[in-house]
Simulated assay, not measured.
Amino acid sequence: MKSRQSPIPRQPIKRNSDALSTTASRLCSKPTSTPGADMLHHISIGVRDLRAAGAFYDGTLGALGYRRVFDGEASIGYGLVDGQDILLLNLCVDAAAPGDGFHLAFSAPSRASVDAFHRNGLAAGGRDNGAPGLRPDYGDAYYAAFLVDPDGHRIEAVINRIAA
């Protein structure tokens, strides 16, 4: 079966691998000297409506301290440093979210940011998949919120440490 591509030509994305790996390690609170600590370089997901997806992720990821670091005709990147995306949205006319069992969990700096992630996501067209709150089945300090984005991707914001 032939795969169909987006009608808009993709623009090359410039990345600085060393800086991104350092950023990813810091975000995951893993020491960079540990083999395998930089397991993921970035995640790309397909979206059918880049504008709607951008509005959704601007609000949800913005609440967690991330921002747009790349903005192209057919892609939007999110991270901390310009040009060093950790999450990339790609316009794809046939985009489909993965099935049951898959979700992306984003680290949150505070419980308040988890609450804002959920609130902003609902305001931008997301669907509730679990209100903010403690999840004792996952751990004593596991505080999370779950959403489904406009394209059907399941996402979570989580902080898993005792509130100070």
Rank of each mutant, 00 (worst) to 15 (best):
residue 2 K to S: 10
residue 3 S to R: 13
residue 3 S to Q: 11
residue 4 R to Y: 09
residue 5 Q to I: 13
residue 5 Q to G: 04
residue 7 P to S: 03
residue 7 P to D: 00
residue 9 P to M: 12
residue 12 P to A: 05
residue 13 I to M: 14
residue 15 R to D: 00
residue 16 N to R: 02
residue 16 N to A: 02
residue 18 D to R: 10
residue 18 D to G: 01
residue 20 L to S: 03
residue 20 L to Y: 03
residue 20 L to K: 04
residue 22 T to P: 00
residue 22 T to A: 15
residue 22 T to S: 12
residue 22 T to K: 14
residue 24 A to D: 00
residue 24 A to S: 10
residue 27 L to Q: 07
residue 27 L to R: 08
residue 27 L to V: 11
residue 29 S to A: 14
residue 29 S to M: 08
residue 30 K to W: 04
residue 30 K to C: 06
residue 31 P to L: 02
residue 33 S to Q: 07
residue 34 T to Y: 08
residue 35 P to T: 00
residue 35 P to D: 01
residue 38 D to F: 09
residue 39 M to I: 09
residue 39 M to K: 13
residue 43 I to E: 04
residue 43 I to F: 13
residue 43 I to N: 04
residue 44 S to P: 05
residue 46 G to A: 15
residue 46 G to L: 09
residue 48 R to W: 01
residue 48 R to I: 00
residue 50 L to P: 13
residue 50 L to S: 13
residue 50 L to V: 13
residue 51 R to L: 10
residue 58 D to G: 07
residue 59 G to A: 09
residue 60 T to M: 01
residue 60 T to E: 01
residue 61 L to V: 07
residue 62 G to N: 06
residue 63 A to F: 05
residue 67 R to C: 09
residue 67 R to P: 06
residue 68 R to H: 08
residue 71 D to N: 14
residue 71 D to W: 03
residue 72 G to C: 07
residue 73 E to M: 13
residue 74 A to H: 05
residue 74 A to E: 12
residue 75 S to N: 15
residue 75 S to Y: 08
residue 76 I to G: 14
residue 76 I to M: 14
residue 78 Y to F: 15
residue 82 D to W: 00
residue 85 D to R: 07
residue 86 I to D: 01
residue 87 L to W: 03
residue 87 L to G: 01
residue 88 L to C: 08
residue 89 L to V: 07
residue 90 N to C: 09
residue 91 L to T: 02
residue 91 L to A: 14
residue 92 C to R: 14
residue 93 V to K: 04
residue 94 D to S: 00
residue 98 P to G: 05
residue 98 P to K: 03
residue 99 G to M: 05
residue 100 D to V: 03
residue 100 D to L: 04
residue 102 F to L: 10
residue 103 H to T: 01
residue 103 H to A: 02
residue 106 F to D: 00
residue 109 P to C: 00
residue 111 R to T: 03
residue 111 R to E: 10
residue 111 R to W: 08
residue 113 S to C: 12
residue 113 S to F: 05
residue 115 D to N: 08
residue 115 D to L: 04
residue 116 A to M: 04
residue 119 R to H: 08
residue 121 G to I: 08
residue 122 L to F: 07
residue 125 G to V: 11
residue 126 G to Y: 09
residue 126 G to K: 11
residue 127 R to A: 15
residue 128 D to Q: 07
residue 132 P to K: 05
residue 132 P to F: 06
residue 133 G to I: 10
residue 133 G to D: 05
residue 133 G to N: 11
residue 133 G to A: 09
residue 134 L to W: 13
residue 137 D to I: 08
residue 138 Y to D: 10
residue 138 Y to S: 09
residue 140 D to P: 15
residue 141 A to E: 15
residue 142 Y to I: 06
residue 145 A to F: 12
residue 145 A to K: 10
residue 145 A to D: 11
residue 145 A to G: 15
residue 146 F to G: 12
residue 147 L to R: 13
residue 149 D to F: 07
residue 150 P to W: 14
residue 153 H to V: 04
residue 155 I to R: 02
residue 155 I to K: 01
residue 156 E to G: 05
residue 157 A to W: 06
residue 159 I to M: 06
residue 159 I to D: 03
residue 159 I to K: 02
residue 160 N to P: 12
residue 161 R to T: 12
residue 161 R to N: 02
residue 161 R to V: 12
residue 163 A to F: 14
residue 164 A to V: 05
